[in-house]
């Protein structure tokens, strides 16, 4: 359950060592090669895609826009909402930093190390992807909640938010970095060594720069996922206003109060962040493609 869920397969696929011509040299102006059957298929697919994704997301933008800038300001100026935004962004930022470091370490260990149980570790990394988010919350409560065998009681605190976000975002950096590390050619490192580079230099000047785009992609996905997380926080964080309430919960509260306009305003901000992440990823991928 790897690149499929994290949407970075392009980053993860370096070019072959041969001098394969980059695609962009062949890019021609958009042509239309649809057959009649394919055209019909595309039409049906587009209708479904519009009904399912495009129209509903437009509705969010429209509902958000219907109140004008004033509504944005009033929603965001609300202390409780602002607290939720800062909490979410702050915790998502912290968790993303943790993922950058630990995720890279885990990927390194999975690719370069050999030890008993490594295969199991590899499978466990995917558990957060596969586990329903509400179950993730329950799972974390069992170790970090009131009946913790460790004696740690983090439920309903800021730590619980970080914990839940760390859980659900664990695989992103690992699964974007791992394939790139696997494909790093040993002879590149050997070349550096024969030119006199020490281990540390090779790590700093050869390996890390090669991994940087993948790390960035994983971090972006991890951040996007963290700021939109909802399910795993429901049981764990207690959704206490000003303390553990995140943006998603805020949106849900607006919906439950029938205040769809405010919900949409806040939701459109989240959509915007999602869009920024997608664009950023696209840019990273193009730069990597340029490297070949």
């Amino acid at each position: 359950m790897t690149s499929a869920l994290i949407g970075a397969s392009e980053v993860a696929r370096p070019a072959s060592p041969e001098g394969r011509r980059p695609r962009r040299f062949r890019r021609s102006t958009p042509r239309n090669t649809l057959t009649r059957g394919a055209g019909l298929g595309l039409g049906i697919a587009m209708i479904w895609f519009s009904l399912l994704v495009l129209i509903p997301l437009s509705a969010v933008i429209a509902a958000a826009g219907s109140g004008g800038w004033d509504r944005y300001f009033s929603v965001l100026r609300n202390d409780q909402t602002w607290a939720a935004v800062t909490l979410t962004v702050g915790q998502a930022g912290i968790v993303t930093l943790v993922n950058i470091v630990i995720g890279t370490v885990i990927a390194w260990v999975l690719v370069r190390d050999q030890f008993w149980g490594k295969r199991l570790l590899d499978v466990i990394i995917d558990v957060p992807f596969a586990l329903p988010t509400i179950v993730a919350g329950l799972v974390l409560l069992s170790l970090y909640g009131p009946n913790s065998p460790l004696g740690i009681h983090w439920a309903f605190t800021e730590n619980a938010v970080a914990l839940a976000l760390a859980f659900v975002t664990l695989p992103f950096v690992v699964r974007t970095v791992q394939p790139v590390l696997e494909e790093l050619e040993a002879d590149v490192e050997e070349a550096a060594a024969s030119l006199g580079a020490s281990r540390g230099t090779i790590l700093r000047r050869i390996i890390l720069p090669s991994l940087a785009p993948a790390i960035a992609a994983g971090a972006a996905l991890s951040f996007a996922r963290a700021i939109s997380e909802y399910g795993s926080l429901v049981l764990l964080s207690g959704n206490r206003p000003f303390e553990t309430e995140v943006v998603s919960v805020r949106v849900l509260t607006f919906i439950e109060n029938g205040n769809n306009g405010s919900a949409a305003a806040l939701a459109s901000v989240m959509l915007f962040v999602a869009l920024v992440v997608i664009v950023a990823l696209d840019i990273v991928q193009r730069r990597v493609a340029r490297r070949g």
Partner: peptide, 8 residues
Amino acid sequence: QHYAVFKH
């Protein structure tokens, strides 16, 4: 054989 260039 396969150049081992530093791609970045």
